[in-house]
């Protein structure tokens, strides 16, 4: 039972290896805006007095934030899975899954995991070099337990990202062209997920609302766990909300699939 999914991971690795250069370029080009952002923050801090902070971040912890973001992003981000799933539905490639004893969601999850492995292998060198160049800013957690919470929140973030993308791609059952929806979602993930800046430098009222949405748990939360900015009650609350959203989107993904298949007319073959 489990064995066949291991096979799928193996096949997924082989398939995505074809696009290793694609992944490498992605990782390399992703570093450009990141470096630019670090320069921007250095310029912001340069105008302030020595040792001053922005919403509790010193220059060092701000740079450190972006470094950890890069690592977490490499571990958990969805690259092209949503496009592929919607293409599978549109082109009728899912027909075979309706006939064979392979669950499509688990199948895609295996491919997602395989894709992350290949991405990590391709991105390891550029990301490592980047972190090394900025190593004076790279912090290691003080408490050993932080690693445990960090690992847990990373796995949940990866699952959350995957289930959100999967649910989104299910729209292809109803709409022909879903890229606009993907980009709208992507915009919210970008600003509310912590890609651009730490979510907690936003105004307090807005932050309180955002903390209940799934977005910060896709990227920002694991990073804040690593940086030990989420501690005690805040940590537990965060893990709880993150867990809730994982389950929620898992349910939504399942529901959307079963509804979609009912409506589905196999196009092509």
């Amino acid at each position: 039972m489990v064995k066949k999914y291991w096979y799928i991971i193996g096949i997924g690795v082989q398939n995505t290896l074809v696009y290793r250069v694609n992944f490498l370029l992605r990782a390399l080009f992703g570093l450009i805006p990141l470096t630019a952002t670090i320069f921007l923050w250095k310029a912001v801090f340069a105008e302030k007095a020595e040792g001053s902070t922005v919403a509790g971040y010193t220059l060092a912890s701000m740079v450190s934030y972006y470094l950890v973001v890069t690592v977490v992003d490499a571990l958990t981000a969805v690259t092209e899975d949503d496009w592929q799933i919607s293409a599978d539905i549109k082109d009728g490639n899912i027909n075979q899954f309706l006939l064979k004893p392979v669950d499509y969601l688990r199948y895609r999850l295996c491919l997602f995991v395989a894709g992350r492995f290949v991405y990590l292998a391709a991105a390891a060198v550029p990301v490592a070099v980047f972190v090394l160049v900025q190593r004076e800013y790279f912090v290691i957690p003080v408490h050993a337990m932080t690693w445990v919470w960090f690992a847990g929140s990373i796995i949940m973030a990866a699952l959350l990202n995957f289930f959100i993308s999967y649910s989104m791609a299910m729209l292809a059952f109803w709409v022909v062209e879903i890229s606009t929806f993907i980009f709208i979602l992507f915009a919210f993930e970008y600003i509310a997920g912590g890609h651009l800046f730490p979510v907690d430098i936003m105004p307090a009222g807005l932050l309180e609302v955002l903390n209940w949405t799934p977005f910060p748990y896709q990227l920002f939360f694991p990073v804040s766990v690593y940086l030990e900015r989420s501690q005690g009650l805040g940590l537990w609350r965060g893990l709880g909300i993150q867990f809730f959203w994982v389950i929620f989107f898992f349910g939504l993904a399942r529901l959307a699939w079963s509804r979609g298949v009912r409506k589905y007319t196999a196009v092509g073959g």
Partner: peptide, 25 residues
């Protein structure tokens, strides 16, 4: 090697920095 989405991705990342003040760099 790169699919068209890859090119778009590279493009958006590269041009991301055009909107930043040059003096910051």
């Amino acid at each position: 090697t790169v699919r068209s989405q890859g090119v778009v991705w590279c493009y958006y990342n590269l041009f991301n920095i055009a909107r930043m003040p040059q003096t910051a760099f």
